[in-house]
Amino acid sequence: MKYTITKDPHEDERVQKIIEISGQNIFSCYQCGRCSSGCPMAEFMDVLPNQVFMFLQEGDVDTLLNAKTPWICAACFTCTVRCPVGLDLAAVMEAIRELQLRKNYDYVDPYKVEDREELPPIAMVSNFRKFTP
């Protein structure tokens, strides 16, 4: 495993874009790990929330765009309220998703959803709002 830093991450456009969309200063993370330990979805993630910040601080956005993590975050805000430096992690996850979605990318296909009859409308509305452009 090796990652070569080619550019000051502070100058990276995509990192800046994420900062802009989320409104969060991702550089204030000091890697305490509380987001990850409190995350109810962390066990299903491939990159832990705290690692998301380290990737961003190193300017490695590609890994995040290919990661499952932003699509597994359920926006439950547990991390957000417990973050010692007040970072809104859910917004950062949203920003990473937006980078993809704004390219007109569908993460879920509404036509393939099973048990549509039973699902509460709020489940479908929220799912599509998060996972489709």
Binding site: Q31, R34, S36, S37, G38, L48, N50, Q51
Partner: peptide, 12 residues
């Protein structure tokens, strides 16, 4: 105790 090992990237 619900923690994390940030070094291996695993929930502990």
């Amino acid at each position: 105790v619900q923690g994390v090992d940030t070094l291996t990237g695993r929930i502990v």
